[in-house]
Simulated assay, not measured.
Amino acid sequence: MTTSIENALISQAPPSLYYIPDFITPEEESYLLKQVYAAPKPKWTQLSNRRLQNWGGLPHPKGMIPEDLPQWLQTYSQKIAALGLFEDKVPNHVLVNEYLPGQGIMPHEDGPLYYPTVSTISLGSHTLLDFYRPITETQAGDNINTNTETSKTSFEDRYLCSMLLQPRSLILVRDDMYKVNLHGIAERKEDTITDSVVNLCKCDGVKIGDKLERTTRVSLTIRYVPKILKAKLFLGKKR
């Protein structure tokens, strides 16, 4: 682990959250947004509260049939791998999410399909990423919430903290903050900064009490899928 990534650790949060402001330049941000919106229409999947693109293959409990990432994503996958939090692995899967103002995602886990570290680059707008304890320790241990968006019931009393994700920043989540706790984005058009934002010391120009208006945000969630299958295995079964 490099000294720079150690400096990115948020000591005010439970283990382990890392935050790097200005991980990419404004020029890189413009380039990445151009690539996202240049993707063909069939690449987009429309959900009720956002739309997304899937790159690298479709993760599945039985394994993912990998597809090569385009060069514009490979570049940042390798840049993130160089930080050392994926050990010797290079992320091989990217989920692109587009959030319009007022859109978000219910608290959820990323689950065991992925190596237990997730990284996200934010483009275009800020957001607040909120963290919560699981509904019960039994459910957490049994992975009942894995890859599902849970109900809104009683999230307030399980709230842990928030991270302000500014445009061009990188967040990395690992340890219990990945494996046990839930994360989500509230559906609102404006965020009020409070002392629950644990990375505020790394966010220039923002202070407690500020109200930040959301615009359209694109996130690149960059992960590593350990379980890989070869397409020819499936083709062989069909014969």
Rank of each mutant, 00 (worst) to 15 (best):
L32K: 02
L235T: 12
W72N: 05
Y114R: 00
P59Y: 15
K41L: 12
K207R: 10
H108K: 08
L233W: 08
D210P: 06
W55S: 04
V94T: 08
G63N: 07
L170F: 06
A39R: 15
E187A: 14
Q78P: 08
T215V: 11
A140R: 09
L128N: 02
L164H: 02
S219H: 02
Q166S: 15
G63P: 09
D130W: 05
H60C: 12
T136S: 14
I10M: 03
C161H: 09
L128T: 03
K62G: 14
L9E: 08
R158S: 10
P107I: 01
L128G: 02
L229Q: 04
D68P: 09
L233S: 13
K189H: 11
D204T: 01
F23C: 03
N181V: 10
I80P: 07
T148A: 13
K227E: 05
M177A: 12
E213V: 14
T153R: 15
T148E: 06
L160Q: 02
D88F: 09
G56L: 04
E28T: 07
R50C: 04
Y99A: 05
T127W: 06
Q53P: 03
L100Y: 06
R188K: 13
Y31L: 12
P59G: 06
Q12S: 13
V198Q: 04
K227R: 09
N97I: 11
L52C: 14
C203A: 11
E98L: 10
G57A: 08
R214K: 11
L233P: 01
G111T: 09
Q78A: 15
Q71V: 11
N181T: 02
Y115P: 09
P116T: 03
K227I: 05
P134Q: 11
L123T: 08
L113G: 10
S219D: 03
S4K: 14
Y132D: 09
G104S: 02
T75N: 09
I121H: 00
E149F: 13
H60D: 15
F155G: 00
T136G: 06
L200I: 08
V36L: 11
Y159A: 12
T221P: 03
S169C: 08
L165E: 02
K230Q: 11
R223E: 01
R188W: 06
Y18S: 12
D195A: 07
E187C: 13
Q139E: 14
V94M: 01
T25L: 04
D130S: 15
H93A: 03
P134S: 06
Y115D: 10
D157P: 06
G84V: 11
M64F: 02
F155M: 11
E137M: 12
R188A: 11
L172E: 05
Q78H: 13
P101V: 07
S169R: 00
L95H: 04
A8F: 00
L128F: 09
P134A: 07
I222P: 00
E67I: 10
L17Y: 13
K79D: 04
F234Y: 13
K62Q: 15
L170V: 09
I135K: 09
L123F: 06
F155H: 14
N49M: 06
R168L: 04
A13I: 06
M106D: 12
P116L: 06
F131R: 00
Q166L: 10
P40W: 10
F23Y: 10
